[in-house]
Design a protein around this nucleic acid. Structure first.
Lengths: 146, 146
DNA sequence: TTGTTTTTCAACACTGATTGTAGATAAGCC
DNA sequence: GGCTTATCTACAATCAGTGTTGAAAAACAA
C-alpha cells in the first residue's frame, strides 16, 4: 500500500476530496498486517478521532479498494476483511476457530489460472484459502477436549 | 450425495428424526448442481410443501453438512451456498457479477497443502476460488459498455 | 393402537454486518 | 471570504442467518 501522503495525492488526482477522516484511515491501514474488518479499522480510527463514523470507514475502504490500493476479502469469517498488501501476490491462511488471517506469500506464487472456456467462463483470478487452527486456538481446543 | 432413502436411513441411524420436511429437502438437493443458497432450497421446497419454513431448511442443511453429506461454502457472494457434491474433490468457479457457481473438477485435484508451521498454524484444508464472468454476464457487461 | 417421551416444526422476534437517506459540514476553487 | 459540490454524521433500513417457544409429529414401548 502507498503511504498516507501518496494516497492523499491519489485521491485528489481522482477527483475525490481529502478529509481528515480519510487521512486518519490511511494512517491506520499503513502497515497493518492483521487483515482488519471495517469494524476493527473504525475502532483503531476512533482512537485518533472519536467522532468518526463507521459509515465513513466503510466508504473510504471501498474507495481504496476501487482504486486498487487495498483488497477486500470475504474469507468466510462473517465479515469482509481488508488487506493493504496488494504488491506481493499471496494467498491466505484462515483460522477456522477465531477467524484470524495470515498471509502466505511463498506458496503458489504463480498458480495457473485454468481455462474455464469449456463452461463459457472468462476466468480472471484465482485465490487459495487454507483453513486450519492458529497457535492460540490449538491451545484452547486442546483445553476443551481434555 | 446419497439418495433420499439413504439419507433417511442415515438420519435415523444418527438419532435424528425423519420428517416429511427433511425428506422434501433431500429430494430437492438430489442432483442439484447449482450450489443453491438456503433461500433457493427453501423456494424449491415450497413447491412441494407450501408451509415449510426457512428455519427448517437452514437446520436440515446444517444437519446434512454436519454429517458430511453436503458441504457449505462461503464464496463471497453474500450468502452461504450448499454443494451436494462431496464425492469428487473439486474447486469452484464463481461469477463475479451474478454469483453463479460452477464446479471445476479437473483442476488441481491434488493441491499440496503447504506447511504453515512457520506461522504456528496447523493447516487442514485448501480451497481454490476462481473468479470470472459467466457466459450470461459477459453478454450483459458487453451491452453496458457499448 | 394408544400413551409417553423427545425431537422437530413454524412463527416471530432478534442479531450483526452492511447500506440508504438527508440534513449539516467541510473541501476545493474562484 | 464565498460558492459549489462532495463528504460526514446520525439514524433508519436491509438482509442473511439465529434464538425462542408453544404446538405438532416421530420414535418407542406396552
Amino acid at each position: 500500500m502507498k503511504t498516507p501522503e501518496e494516497l492523499t495525492e491519489l485521491f485528489r488526482a481522482n477527483g475525490r476530496k481529502v478529509t481528515a477522516q480519510r487521512q486518519c484511515i490511511f494512517r491506520v491501514l499503513q502497515g497493518d498486517m492483521t487483515h482488519p474488518s471495517a469494524e476493527a479499522v473504525h475502532l483503531a480510527a476512533t482512537r485518533e478521532m472519536e467522532t468518526i463514523s463507521l459509515k465513513t470507514v466503510y466508504q473510504t475502504l471501498h474507495d481504496l479498494a476501487e482504486l486498487g490500493e487495498i483488497s477486500s476479502l470475504d474469507l468466510g469469517t462473517g465479515m469482509i476483511r481488508f488487506d493493504p498488501n496488494v504488491d506481493d501476490p499471496h494467498h491466505h491462511l484462515v483460522c477456522r476457530h477465531c477467524g484470524k488471517v495470515r498471509d502466505l506469500v511463498a506458496a503458489f506464487p504463480d498458480l495457473q489460472i485454468p481455462n474455464g472456456a469449456d463452461l463459457g467462463f472468462e476466468v480472471g483470478s484465482a485465490e487459495i484459502v487454507f483453513r486450519g487452527l492458529c497457535p492460540e486456538c490449538q491451545q484452547s481446543t486442546l483445553q476443551l477436549s481434555t
